[in-house]
Design a protein around this nucleic acid. Structure first.
Lengths: 202, 202
DNA sequence: AAAAAGATAGTAATTAATTACTATCTTAGT
DNA sequence: ACTAAGATAGTAATTAATTACTATCTTTTT
């Protein structure tokens, strides 16, 4: 039944487009992804894309919605059922890193969107994504302080910033090395230091 | 003597160009800075830029050389004469943050260069800059371990990655907030956590 | 006067978006 | 069940705008 891959229903075509962009962003500068490149990668003509998206920015919007949905679902799932706040943070960190290793273009797209001057739709999606992400961390950190796992004197906001920055640092390192896979090995080592920085002295 | 700012000698014109780019990158997406925008910002016609640079990439090269030179000089100066390795690291961190606060476009340009697929001249400059930066950190961390200031069990590479990532995280936060100034206030709070993660237990 | 620096007015290539047309699928009427 | 009609999806070519870069002429400096 895979013979006729042409003529997909609109919603499927949009989904395929989003996946194509995510994949392309993993191997090339997101800001240099053209509509022609997207179309070529999915064996479609460039103009056909605009049957499904009114503008290129609408494509980016769909992509960032895809990212926001999947990433938040992933980290929520990872933290679910874990009693210890610190263990939950570690689970979130590792699942986030796994997500990035699977889709290396994601953090780079997000950083690129944040750099835009104009307040575009995709930029706003990224902003609320990070906002929601931060809220979850905030809650966990406070819970960790309450139960004595984390240092009572810990600066919650700073710890949140450092948590997200840690992942951005890993991404940068992988760009430098030109190797995405090593991020999986580096992540636990870096998180260990972070953990030591926030944990209460025992 | 400031009446006739037109007709600068070539080397001065190049310097002014670099400064214009650095300034522009502070307020707009570096990848969207056109030669026309650069020229406009320095009250010059677009074509005149190519009297002083053979290609646009040569402009980026000059910019990244400027960055590499200034940043390394800045952190070397900050660390100079400080006995304690940990205190030296803190001084480097703060001077780096101060540099970023003065030139917010810098880390964004660097991240943008690293995203390029082709191995261009400006990309290579950024790579060697971070390499040299990492070497300095590496040395300080080893010295810190030797003198007992840092945990003997510390993972040097991971600590280096986290150091640089921490700054990238601060930059991301400032992009989110649309406020560069807060980076100065956030930096010491975030570094405090980092420090706690690498210091030896006393 | 000579040389350096800038202005003006281009070019060729690339890009997102549009257009006229075609192929395929879906569904209503018999 | 069959077919005609409409809706949906795709193609190929084209458009206007933008981009880095260049050729020619003018002005300024020394």
């Amino acid at each position: 039944m895979n013979t006729h891959v042409k003529h997909l229903p609109a919603d499927e075509r949009r989904a395929v487009t989003v996946e194509a962009v995510v994949k392309l962003a993993g191997s090339q500068n997101p800001s240099e992804i053209t509509t022609a490149a997207i179309a070529k990668h999915m064996n479609l003509t460039q103009g056909a894309l605009f049957r499904h998206f009114p503008t290129k920015d609408a494509i980016w919007q769909a992509v960032m919605e895809w990212v926001a949905e999947r990433l938040l679902a992933r980290i929520d799932c990872a933290a679910q059922g874990i009693e210890s706040p610190l263990a939950a943070m570690q689970a979130i960190f590792m699942s986030h890193v796994e997500f990035v290793a699977e889709h290396p273009g994601v953090p780079r797209m997000m950083f690129g969107e944040l750099q835009r001057t104009k307040q575009t739709a995709p930029k706003r999606i990224v902003q609320t994504l990070i906002l929601r992400y931060g809220e979850r961390l905030h809650r966990l950190i406070e819970a960790g302080k309450a139960c004595g796992e984390l240092s009572a004197a810990l600066d919650t906001e700073a710890a949140t910033t450092l948590f997200i920055g840690t992942i951005q640092g890993l991404v940068m390192q992988s760009l430098l090395a030109g190797n995405v896979e090593r991020i999986r090995d580096d992540a636990p080592r870096v998180f260990a230091i972070y953990q030591r920085g926030i944990r209460s002295a025992q």
